[in-house]
Amino acid sequence: MITDTELTTLLEDIYRQYGYDFIGYSKSSLHRRVQRIFAMDKFPSFAELRYKLLTDDLYVKHFIEELTVNVTEMFRDPHFYKTLREQVIPSLASKPFIRIWHAGCSTGEEIFSVAIMLQEAGLLEKSLIYGTDLNAKVLANVRRGLVPIDQMKKYSENYIASGGPKDFSQYYTAHYGQAILNQKLTEKVITSTHNLVSDSSFNEFDLILCRNVLIYFNKNLQDHVLDLFDKSLSPLGFLALGSKETIRFSGLATYYQQIQPEKIWRKTQ
């Protein structure tokens, strides 16, 4: 077992030597992940893991990827997407140009879901979808529009439950165990690495989605990131978080209005 002190030592090493700042991450989740990597890569002792991280740049890359990869789904929580489809997207329609930011987009399944809904609303053409993640490896997947084919049955059910009116299978073709999304859906997507801890706002958006990313941060870092989102939202923009995340405990709460019962808030000033 890795102790709390050892975990802190590792995080400080990584920050000092490579500049990745995990100090504000939730200790409990990080601890589980480091423990898992430690077991998976069969280190005989903590000292060996620490030495490897201090001396092997390639291993550090792998370690950071394992530490930061997040699971994602298409149309996860269908009722959330139903609200997005019925209450958020229509109010973006009158804009000459729509900018959306998926912060911490992982392998892109949520981007693909929103792209499908924008296309169905006839708005994809005038939209730009920015997908950012700390982990560069996952972004290659976003650009190619790849989804594991064995998940498509579940995603199809999610899509229907979210009020999707079309035949879901028209949005992808099967290719060697993967589903490739129609190119139309990914050509409006721009990907970039972005670190919510250390990078600043880079544009103004009408909708920011950041679902199940903040749970991995401690309260201080959550406040910092919510402030970053606030600075990056247009005056009546929308912020969408994961189903158990909230802005209730932050300074934003007073001038954002929630679309109950979903974790979607609209900026009111």
Binding site: S29, N70, I215, N218, G242, K244
Partner: peptide
């Protein structure tokens, strides 16, 4: 514990959620 999340203790005062596999 909410559905679809793991429930962790961040410290003696705070819960934390995690959606790992």
């Amino acid at each position: 514990a909410p559905s679809d999340y793991h429930l962790l203790l961040e410290d003696r005062a705070t819960f934390c959620l995690d959606d790992d596999e």
